[in-house]
Amino acid sequence: MSSEKISETSSESTCFHFTQGKIPLLVSIPHAGTLLTPEVENALSDAARSLPDTDWHIPLLYDFVRDLGASVIIGRYSRFVVDLNRPPDNQPLYTTATTGLFPETLFDGTPTFAEGKTPSAEQRQSYIDHIWQPYHQQIQHELARLKAEYGYALLFDAHSIASVIPRLFEGRLPDINIGTNDGASCSPAVINAIQAVCAEQDKYSWVLNGRFKGGYITRAYAQPDENVQAVQLELAQCNYMDETPPFAWRQERATALQKVLKPLIQAFIEQGKV
């Protein structure tokens, strides 16, 4: 694994794929990866082998952002190796049930690893050094580049999750879950514009700062007072895919959802201008 900074227009590293865009927006996709280290692959429980907590197909769902001109970074390793949207000190982000930097359980509470096979502390430190750190270094590098070139930078953190997970939330999750760290990660104008897009349609339910307020990436890099704004979007997966293995992509559903996602991101771009 390589920990060097990758800054070419389009780059592959062992831990992420990065494409540099032409507008002041970086789209981060940290949880779509499916690569496993040998020690994690050999240790997974039977329930975890299908990688059920992956943000399946999110790069495909958001492929349109490249046409808009956005930069895109996509993590390549599974969150079962190391979770790119958790702080490196593994401090919890929520007071309710959640998973950590190294998930010991699946979202439903089932053990991630077979008994006695959890990766060692040394192995996990290497995941921080060679997977977690390079991803975040690239985010930092790109946000700094965007701010230097345009005077401001926008960060959109794209996620998805199964629509029903009783351990994490009651009932069925809203379709569109906007996270702004309770309004601290972006301007009121951005929040209002995104809400307006959601309110203009009646196909999908939505909520602002509900169960998902924004993870580490949103909280760590948003600095509205310094012209860096961030928004997280958590989508209910039933709106673009099957939520059970083999987690198939559903084009018709995805196309309908993209008709809301595209104007939502365009509103972020427009209102995020400084």
Rank of each mutant, 00 (worst) to 15 (best):
230 A>N: 10
54 T>S: 09
274 V>H: 15
83 D>I: 15
220 A>N: 03
247 F>S: 04
23 I>P: 04
271 Q>H: 12
205 S>L: 12
117 K>V: 02
195 Q>M: 13
121 A>H: 03
58 I>W: 10
126 S>Q: 08
7 S>K: 01
117 K>W: 01
190 V>C: 15
39 E>C: 11
14 T>E: 15
149 E>T: 03
195 Q>K: 08
272 G>N: 02
139 I>E: 14
198 C>Q: 02
230 A>I: 00
217 I>A: 12
34 T>A: 12
127 Y>S: 06
212 F>T: 00
193 A>P: 10
49 R>Y: 01
226 E>S: 10
211 R>W: 04
145 R>F: 14
137 Q>W: 05
7 S>R: 10
44 L>R: 09
173 L>Q: 09
217 I>M: 08
207 V>G: 11
67 D>R: 03
151 G>E: 01
118 T>P: 06
274 V>W: 13
48 A>H: 06
259 K>T: 13
26 L>R: 09
97 A>M: 02
251 Q>E: 12
125 Q>R: 07
186 C>M: 01
204 Y>M: 02
51 L>Y: 10
162 A>K: 12
64 F>R: 13
44 L>I: 00
159 H>Q: 05
99 T>Y: 05
233 L>C: 01
78 S>G: 13
9 T>S: 14
138 Q>L: 04
260 V>T: 05
211 R>P: 01
129 D>C: 05
73 I>M: 13
221 Y>S: 07
14 T>N: 13
242 D>C: 11
8 E>F: 12
55 D>E: 05
125 Q>T: 07
240 Y>S: 04
114 A>N: 09
18 F>A: 14
157 D>S: 12
162 A>V: 00
139 I>D: 12
145 R>G: 02
169 F>H: 11
161 I>F: 07
177 N>C: 05
110 T>W: 12
104 E>Y: 11
68 L>I: 12
177 N>S: 07
203 K>C: 14
159 H>Y: 11
151 G>M: 04
177 N>W: 08
232 Q>P: 07
274 V>G: 09
28 S>G: 07
83 D>H: 06
5 K>G: 13
256 A>I: 09
53 D>K: 12
28 S>Y: 10
100 G>A: 07
261 L>H: 15
129 D>M: 04
245 P>R: 02
181 N>M: 13
70 A>N: 08
75 G>H: 04
123 Q>Y: 05
81 V>Y: 13
9 T>C: 11
202 D>A: 13
63 D>T: 12
157 D>N: 15
12 E>A: 13
186 C>D: 09
88 P>C: 07
237 Q>S: 10
221 Y>K: 00
176 I>W: 12
238 C>I: 00
145 R>P: 07
140 Q>G: 14
229 Q>N: 10
173 L>S: 06
243 E>A: 08
111 P>F: 04
52 P>M: 01
42 N>D: 05
202 D>S: 14
101 L>D: 09
214 G>M: 06
153 A>Y: 09
174 P>F: 03
132 W>H: 06
182 D>P: 15
114 A>Q: 06
28 S>R: 12
84 L>I: 05
20 Q>Y: 10
61 L>N: 11
269 I>N: 01
202 D>I: 03
260 V>P: 02
55 D>L: 10
60 L>A: 14
183 G>L: 02
134 P>K: 03
152 Y>L: 00
225 D>K: 04
70 A>V: 02
27 V>C: 14
267 A>T: 08
15 C>T: 03
273 K>E: 01
